[in-house]
Write a protein that binds this DNA or RNA. Structure first.
Length: 698
DNA sequence: AGCCCTCGAGTTCT
DNA sequence: CTCGAGGGCT
């Protein structure tokens, strides 16, 4: 006899498996987790409980049986007894001046002494020595909890297993594990020779090496280490300044960067910054800046901490790396709202550790400003070390014909949509060009579907750009409601055709089974998205100028979809932040018969959302407070924290201004925290936030 | 009318 | 992250 189980347990198990697999993959392959370890663990535990309660749901390759995907199953979590802090960043000289001025003012010292060192681009690590023996090594993690990597760290030759001299009972040394550049090149050359995978860059090489499940693999990786601080046991060190501490660590046998120096006053700092910057390429490790630490311990104590960054230290970063490459072509993409965005297709080039092949050119104005033409040599960097941007054209290298005329003309945006051929128009006063095709345009339909399925909208896991495109191209989805009528066979068929179209080959019986399970997961994810909230649904519909914040405001104000659809312009503009433009977009959207059709169909296929009474004012202990969340929180996600604060009446905002009344600063908070300090805005740590939430729990 | 603040939209790579 | 535009305030 099978045990009785609720009919939705199987569906839930499928959704959980799909999610866990996706997250684990993201974590493992890309070092870029999208949820916290705690959240991942919660999902995993839910699935375990489900499988335990319903043994018939257990399958052999369930994520609950996999090893090593996340620290939960691979590396034991380690709670740092003294949190591993982050550093305040500075890019401009002016910020360094402010840093020194602040110290001089608060310590009363003029031209204070600093200990200065390169900021190595590696992996922060904590080494715990007990009675002089290396007892435990852990990664930084989020600063509070890291992963235990002792076995791997023991294979790093420059890390002593035993301290020399008279070591204290417990000493926690902190520093950076990195892969020296020469060793990295050497390793890759050999890997290439053996036909093995090469490492993308030294930083990823170091991070990936320490996360190997097999220490024997780590041992083959050429890693090195420099110590730069003491965590636990700091009180025991026989020193009264940071530079003395480093000397003491050196005497215990720990490697210290040879570039460490002391510097006096702002001149000393800037001189060091300049010298290291000039020597940067010759150093045997990648750096992204230098670190200034106020040297004397008593002065450090006087400066104290803000949130989770010491006020006595500063990381002074070097400007983003700029690289030259060539523009192969300029393509035009069509977005969800029909906006035409030109994109430069580049000769692949390594910028700050990744290979860049595309860079947005934003719009026609930007192209004109830069005068970018096909074939041009351009200077590229990654803005904020993330998104590639074209800085300028190197005109001397522009290709010319024999007569000396430029080979390529000034670039002109197309007069018709490259996707559907409809006319392109520039609305009055607007910078961007738009395709006028509306939902006739395939590109806009695809993007509308991608938006509908996205995480902040209906949150359909697994339905990304590629499959949205296929669904539209193969005519399976005309309106978003069609999504809910599709069955497993439809998705199998779609995937087969998509693979075929893209030349993805083998189709064994086993692959067919995998495809079926993939399709089942997708159907389950779509089904799960039926239960939603009105603000998510409104956002998902993609009304122009109605983003997340506006969707929430509309939901709160009207309470129900019917009330919103019945609202006239006057009723709409009564809402704060809704003016005539947004009001007319909303009215027009609901006036269109095909939009009303889609909504009727969505109701028909069983989309359900919670409706409440209209609430014209915010209530609760956080009413009238505008809150900004910054940095990463460890016990809950920022989204979650925001939602809970909103439930208490807070307005959540993305940027700090005079009107902000409270900033919650998590780990590695950056410019927003700095701005809040500057404006004298109240700042809470995660601990204070949790205490407040606990005190006002519903 | 001009300024400042927010919000929306688009974007890259792994 | 960055830009542009909507909306409110002075």
């Amino acid at each position: 006899m099978k045990p009785a189980r609720p009919p939705d347990a199987a569906a839930r198990a499928r959704v959980l498996r799909a999610e866990l697999t996706a997250h684990a993959e993201r974590y493992h392959r890309h070092d870029a987790p999208s949820i916290t370890d705690a959240q991942y663990d919660a999902l995993l535990r839910e699935l375990e409980a489900l499988e335990a309660a319903h043994p018939d749901l257990s399958i052999v390759d369930s994520p609950t049986r996999r090893v090593g995907a996340r620290p939960a199953s691979g590396f034991a979590p380690v709670v740092h007894s003294v949190p591993m802090l982050s550093l305040a960043n500075a890019f401009a000289t002016e910020e360094v001046h402010e840093f020194v001025a602040r110290i001089e003012k608060e310590t009363g010292a003029s031209s204070p002494q600093f200990s200065v060192e390169p900021k190595i681009d590696g992996l922060a690590i904590s080494l715990r020595y007990k009675d002089g023996e290396l007892a435990r090594a852990a990664t930084r993690g989020d600063g509070t909890t890291g992963e235990e990597v002792t076995a791997n760290v023991r294979t790093v030759t420059s890390i002593p297993h035993t301290l020399s001299g008279k070591a204290p009972k417990v000493l926690e040394v902190r520093g950076e594990v990195f892969m020296p550049k020469a060793a990295f090149d050497d390793f890759n050359a050999r890997a290439l020779g053996r036909g093995e995978r090469t490492l993308a860059n030294p930083r990823n090489g170091a991070a990936g090496s320490l996360r190997q499940l097999d220490p024997a693999v780590t041992a083959q990786r050429p890693l090195a280490f420099f110590a730069y601080a003491i965590g636990e046991g700091d009180g025991e060190s026989p020193t009264s300044s940071h530079s003395e501490t480093l000397e003491w660590l050196r005497s215990l046998g720990l490697p210290i960067s040879p570039e460490v120096e002391t510097a006096t006053g702002i001149e000393g700092l800037l001189d060091y910054y300049g010298r290291i910057g000039a020597a940067r390429d010759g150093l045997d490790y990648d750096i992204d800046g230098v670190v200034y630490k106020l040297d004397r311990s008593d002065q450090q104590r006087a400066m104290g901490f803000v949130s989770r960054a010491p006020r006595w230290a500063l990381a002074h970063k070097y400007p983003a790396q700029e690289v030259a490459t060539r523009v192969r072509a300029i393509d035009v993409q069509v977005g969800r709202t029909g906006v035409l965005t030109p994109v430069a297709r580049l000769e692949p080039v390594a910028v700050a550790g990744v290979i860049v092949t595309n860079a947005t050119l934003h719009n026609a104005d930007q192209i004109e400003r830069l005068d970018v033409r096909v074939g041009d040599e351009v200077i590229v960097r990654r803005a904020g070390d993330v998104i590639p941007e074209v800085l300028r054209v190197v005109e001397e290298y522009r290709p010319h014909d024999a007569a000396g005329n430029a080979l390529h003309d000034v670039y002109r945006m197309p007069g018709t949509c490259p996707e559907c051929g409809s006319a392109v128009a520039r609305e009055e006063g607007e910078v961007v060009l738009r395709c006028t095709g509306g939902l006739f345009c395939g590109a806009q339909r695809k993007q509308a579907l991608v938006h509908f399925a996205s995480r902040r909208a209906m949150d359909i896991e697994g339905l990304g750009e590629r499959f949205c495109e296929a669904l539209v191209d193969f005519g399976l989805v005309r309106s978003v409601a069609d999504l809910y009528r599709l069955e497993v066979v439809d998705f199998c068929e779609m995937k087969r055709r998509a693979d075929e179209r893209e030349g993805v080959v083998p189709d064994t019986v086993k692959a067919g089974k995998i495809a079926t399970r993939w399709a089942e997961n997708l159907v389950a994810a779509i089904a799960a998205s039926r239960e939603t909230t009105l603000d998510r649904l409104l956002f998902a519909l993609g009304v122009r100028d109605v983003g997340e914040a506006t969707a929430k405001a509309l939901t709160r104000h009207f309470g129900s979809l019917d009330a919103l659809m019945a609202a006239d312009g006057e009723a709409l503009t009564a809402i704060t932040d809704v003016g005539p433009v947004v009001a007319s977009r909303v009215s027009q959207f609901f006036a269109e018969s095909h939009n009303r059709d889609v909504i009727a169909q969505l109701r028909e296929v069983g989309i359900a959302w919670t409706e409440g009474p209209p609430r014209r004012a915010l209530e609760g202990p956080m009413a009238d407070r505008s809150v900004v969340l910054t940095g990463s929180l460890e016990s809950l996600s920022r989204d979650e924290a925001g939602a809970r604060l909103e439930a208490l009446g807070a307005r959540i905002s993305g940027s700090v201004s005079k009107k902000t009344s409270l900033v919650i600063a998590g780990a590695a908070a950056g410019s927003k925290l700095a701005k809040a300090q500057e404006l004298g805005i109240e700042i809470w740590s995660e601990k204070q936030l949790l205490a407040f939430l606990a005190a006002h729990a519903p």
